[in-house]
Design a protein around this nucleic acid. Structure first.
Lengths: 337, 337
DNA sequence: CCGCCAAATGTAACTAGTTACATAGGTTGT
DNA sequence: ACAACCTATGTAACTAGTTACATTTGGCGG
């Protein structure tokens, strides 16, 4: 026991020595076993087992120039929409025999740049980032390292990097136009933080240009709790909105919960529309009308794009996924009082 | 453009040549800039910039013996409880300057073993796994590589690896005893898959030994949708249960939604208790009574444990976090009809 | 004006693999 | 019987860094 405690990890030369063969032969046993005589292979295998030899990933990487993992930078893991997206990303990357390193940024571009540097430092072969608003350092890093990188959750064919995502402006507009088409004009908009969140900003941009609508804006944390609080504020307003447009389903769910609790009927008294289409949104009472974001397809497509770029040097084209209005029970036509 | 396209990535020797210094000096500029004369450093920096030199992570790793990342194996990312957990894990690992590689297993032990091998192949310095039921290959891998590894979401001081988690048997028992204490005895239990999910199995074990309770069991996928379906089945049963015990809040949420929809009053007609305490569970109508699982604290503790093990060789002690009953509105005493 | 010391830099040997090329040995063809 | 060839294996040079140790250079004290 004492003797084994400080036993240094065996390397390929140790194995070669013990098996009385050359390093090349050991390497062959590892990488092309068929090119080695059966007897020799057996001897080497025995030596490997005896020394508990495990090849060094770093030494392999230095020769192949490959680390076999990519980094993903997301604002948070603690939000179903990003978790779903990363789940899809990981799954398809895995088909390409690539692993996924996850780094969270808390929506802070400086943290993002710093974590991107960390990902490069540990050898990431590619980078997946969220949105198109980033620090100059991040761009410089990508440029300097010639690192295959795509931006997601956003679509902008003019962006420096290929974007694979959806049109956030559109998503906002679709949600608004749905409410307008139902006759609503007094609309409360509940949104997440505006600082360095281009997705939210874009969705709000989609609400512009409709002079017929009177919108009031409420900023909230991205939580059910904050949605509840926003609902209370909306109810206490002077001229009450007839519809609430939430830029995220998490907020919409909170609003819905709170209105239910306060005895306000949805959609009879107030309509609610969200954006995201989370798994639970179909099952609330009433079901939440929302704009579906194709994050699963986006995750798969991103994995394919970054893998092909890494493996075959194919710079991916940008890709736009449609956002679809999913009409459920939380919205209805405005009844004139 | 054509000339730069195939330019091979510059290495430290290229930089040394261009700057007319030795490789050691370049290395010093990178790692201890103060030990280099200002002029020399300036020349080297210029060369680095000109050649767009980025040090190879693999070559560094081969010398330091460090890759600076750990792997985590979880059944899925697409479930808030794991996402929250990983978020906490990543956050604290980041404080130790370690990155997190995420691999999902879909609850399949064979996939888990294979993905664990992949993690080792790419150089993970430690492993975090979920639960205590795994393939022999996984244990062999950990043993062979002498890989710092902890098992989480479970507590078992006798397990081969240190466990950092909570007592699932207890969680089940707490939920049941709450219902029993309210006078319920006809209880429908809704649980996830039993195949290779030791957490679910343990929770069910916690339900044993109460002869006063008549329990019927319903297996369902871990989704809101499946919870809704389970609720419908419960309603159509002959002798209707007066309480539903869900081994996961996702299922409980589905059951609650469906009962709401069917006009069944919760908790007047049926009580519901869950396990997890998801962020949204506090805000449903009524609020969901549930057993809180301390996944965030568990994530932080796991990160500290694995980091200390990797950095300082401190094999962590197992750690038990309490599970707490959170009483909200979805449970109430049974009224005799 | 010489010697000592420290700062700055260089040389070469490491880290742990892969692989091009060389060679030894046995089998087959003529 | 000997060339030709194939298979199995070994040698040594790569990959791209770090670092122990050696050497140079310059300033300052005696």
């Amino acid at each position: 026991m004492t003797s084994t405690r400080y036993r240094k990890r065996a390397n390929l030369r140790d194995v070669a020595k013990l098996a009385n063969v050359s390093v090349a032969t050991v390497s062959r046993v590892l990488n092309s076993p068929d090119s080695v005589a059966k007897n020799t292979k057996a001897v080497v295998d025995a030596a490997i087992a005896e020394l508990r030899f495990v090849p060094s990933a770093a030494a392999r990487a230095i020769n192949s120039g490959r680390s076999r993992f990519v980094g993903a930078l997301v604002p948070t893991l603690d939000h179903a929409i990003f978790a779903r997206y990363l789940a899809a990303l990981e799954q398809t990357l895995s088909d390409y025999r690539l692993s996924l390193v996850v780094a969270t940024t808390n929506g802070d571009a400086a943290v993002e740049a710093q974590k991107a540097q960390t990902l490069v430092d540990i050898g990431a072969e590619g980078l997946v980032i969220s949105g198109i608003t980033h620090e100059r350092e991040l761009y410089e890093l990508i440029e300097r390292c010639q690192l295959p990188s795509v931006a997601t959750s956003y679509y902008d064919p003019d962006f420096l990097l290929p974007t694979i995502g959806y049109d956030n402006v559109d998503a906002g507009r679709i949600a608004l136009e749905h409410l307008l088409s139902l006759g609503h004009s007094a609309i409360a908009v509940v949104h997440g933080s505006l600082t360095s969140n281009d997705r939210t900003l874009a969705r709000i941009k989609g609400l512009e240009g409709h002079d017929d609508a009177q919108m009031s804006f409420l900023e909230a944390d991205l939580s059910v709790e904050a949605g509840c609080a926003a609902a209370r504020q909306i109810l206490s307003g002077k001229q009450r909105a007839t519809a609430v447009l939430c830029l995220s389903d998490v907020l919409a769910t909170g609003v819905l919960y709170e209105l239910n609790r306060q005895g306000v009927s949805v959609p009879q008294d107030i309509s609610i529309v969200g954006i995201d289409d989370l798994p639970g949104s179909a099952h609330t009472t009433p079901g939440l009308t929302t704009v579906h974001l194709p994050v699963v397809r986006m995750g798969h497509a991103t994995a394919v794009a970054i893998s092909e770029w890494i493996e075959n040097g194919v710079v991916p084209a940008e890709k736009l996924f449609d956002t679809d209005l999913i009409i459920r029970g939380s919205t209805s036509p405005l009844h004139a009082d």
